[in-house]
């Protein structure tokens, strides 16, 4: 078991180093030179084993990400404003409340990523109050994902946009595209082993507005 733990950890680190970010074209919108960015294979505490209760477990550490700089932030900077969101399993934290020192926050917008051009004025940004509540609610069918027990798969709910207030009080919109390695959800018929080994790899796209306004 110890050997296996090591292997998974090494694999995790290796993948951390090779995450990829790509940039889409943003033609046709010259007034706002902001871009939609896709981040792939962001590792979120991959599974190390399964507890006797049947619940999978990892190391318990978050992977921190800066939307502004489009990069993974080392754990050593967890108490700074250098990161905006963090991932651990299906839990997504914001640099807010008791998760971090930043001015972050978030809420879940129901609708399409492309349709959200301006954050509605009456929107209420929530902040983290771990472990009982998070700005982005945790749990199946509460925030960004649904867990399908019969096929043992985690799927992002379509039409859910995470509206993020960053550590420095700027705004971004974000859509989770996939929760599995390489952005490919295993087939429903794949083995549970495959499904567990390949999960906790986030692919998401986002649009960060650096000028501090609420329009994208």
């Amino acid at each position: 078991m110890k050997m296996k733990t090591m292997t998974v950890a090494v694999l995790g680190i290796a993948l951390l180093g090779t995450y990829a970010c790509s940039k889409d074209d943003n033609s046709g919108n010259t007034n706002q030179p902001i871009q939609t960015v896709t981040a792939s294979n962001i590792v979120a505490d991959t599974i190390l084993g399964i507890a006797p209760s049947g619940q999978p477990y990892g190391s318990g550490k978050f992977t921190f990400f800066s939307l502004e700089r489009n990069t993974v932030v080392p754990s050593s900077d967890s108490a700074t404003n250098k990161w905006d969101i963090g991932f651990r399993g299906t839990t997504i934290i914001t640099n807010s409340g008791n998760s971090g020192p930043g001015q972050g926050g978030a809420f879940v917008f129901i609708g399409l990523f492309d349709d959200l051009l301006t954050i509605p004025a009456d929107s209420v940004f929530r902040v983290d109050n771990a472990p009982s509540s998070y700005a982005i609610p945790t749990g199946s069918n509460r925030g960004w994902y649904v867990y399908n027990a019969p096929v043992n798969l985690v799927t992002p709910v379509p039409g859910r946009v995470l509206v993020i207030r960053t550590a420095t009080g700027k705004y971004a919109k974000l859509e989770i595209l996939n929760y599995y390695r390489g952005g490919v959800t295993p087939a429903a018929t794949a083995s549970d082993d495959d499904k567990l080994r390949n999960q906790r790899f986030y692919t998401f796209r986002y649009r960060f507005q650096p000028d501090g306004t609420k329009t994208f």
Binding site: P158, G183, T185, T203
Partner: peptide, 15 residues
């Protein structure tokens, strides 16, 4: 317009 689907390849949502 409150129900969405997701493209299997790109992961992008649509109505």
């Amino acid at each position: 317009g409150q129900v969405f689907k997701r493209d299997e390849q790109t992961g992008v949502s649509s109505r």
